[in-house]
């Protein structure tokens, strides 16, 4: 199933999210809207992680990009308004990515992972110690657009998901995919074949970090409060990598399906099993990874490189 025609799938998911606030869900409406918000945001994170992973860079810095975006947007939002603040947050995350990327150019796989982990830890410490971030007390963030529109945060997260899906789709169905796949499978061979490996890695990291930064910015506008432990959490990076592995790596559909199922599952389990829902969550995760090494979309057909 080489040309897995996944556009109908993608469109279906996106349409569902776009219309969710208008579905007659009764008393479940508010809860499902919250679930939908987090599904969209963490799926966008997962797509942005996958975009970077396609070059063989295993990023543990996505929590840091998320945090940079969250703090960047949160600090600026009271002064310049919602959208400029979000763009600024994304640029801060992008600047962080370029800094990390330019010092880790020669690193690959696990070595890059360690460097990106260190990067993430350093930034959290900075957020704790610097004065203008509010330190350990945290940072209050105003709701988007002055709070006049209750669905604002939801649709902002929908926008981020839309952007992440579009980027990932472009990267998957353009020559960029071959450059990424070649870089991942052997940098030396890729270079000898003319692939500008450094550029491919930097661009991937930059694009991924912009989406992660936007996600962080929107997250702050939903929770209305940021703390270094929450915004720069390593758990965020882990979640961003678990979803693509669960759904299917190196594709757009994989993280999308993975995000909907996994984040949805987490929220549902949290509701049904008050005590120890994480045990069930973990067990399901392990089973899928054991029996579906190519993730949920592995059930659909052959993988493209």
């Amino acid at each position: 199933m080489r040309e897995l025609s996944h556009l109908p799938f993608l469109s279906f998911f996106l349409l569902l999210f776009a219309l969710l606030p208008f579905l007659p869900l009764g008393i479940w409406g508010a809860f499902l809207l919250d679930v939908g918000f987090f599904i969209q945001l963490f799926t966008a994170m997962a797509l942005s992680w996958d975009l970077v992973a396609r070059t063989g860079q295993l990023s543990l810095a996505h929590g840091a990009f998320f945090g940079l975006g969250a703090y960047g947007a949160g600090l600026l939002a009271p002064h310049v308004g919602t959208l400029p603040a979000l763009v600024f947050g994304a640029f801060v995350a992008g600047a962080g990515a370029l800094l990390l990327g330019s010092v880790t150019l020669r690193l690959h796989g696990l070595y890059f992972a360690i460097a990106s982990l260190a990067f993430s830890e350093v930034l959290r410490t900075l957020a704790l110690k610097l004065a203008f971030t509010g330190g350990p007390i945290g940072l209050p963030v105003p709701p988007p657009f002055g709070g006049v529109w209750p669905l604002a945060a939801y649709y902002l997260s929908f926008g981020v998901l839309l952007l992440a899906t579009a980027l990932s789709h472009w990267a998957e169905w353009s020559p960029f995919r071959l450059a990424q796949a070649a870089t991942r499978q052997s940098e030396a061979v890729a270079r000898v074949l003319g692939v500008r490996v450094v550029r491919v890695k930097l661009w991937s990291l930059l694009l991924g970090s912009l989406v992660a930064g936007l996600s962080g910015g929107v997250y702050g506008m939903k929770t209305l409060f940021l703390s270094p432990y929450d915004a720069f959490s390593l758990g965020r990076a882990v979640e961003a990598l678990v979803i693509p592995i669960f759904g299917g790596l190196y594709s757009t559909l994989g993280p999308l399906v993975g995000g909907v199922v996994l984040v949805g599952l987490e929220q549902a389990l949290r509701l049904w099993i008050k005590e120890g829902y994480l045990v069930v969550y973990g067990a399901i995760l392990i089973l899928v990874i054991l029996f579906l090494p190519r993730g949920l979309v592995g059930l659909l057909g052959r993988r493209r490189g």
């Binding site: 020559p175 071959l178 450059a179 070649a182 890729a190 074949l193 003319g194 692939v195 500008r196």
Partner: peptide
């Protein structure tokens, strides 16, 4: 696709 890598990025 292996050849396309060379063809697309080689020149």
């Amino acid at each position: 696709e292996n050849l396309l890598v060379g063809a697309l990025f080689g020149k």
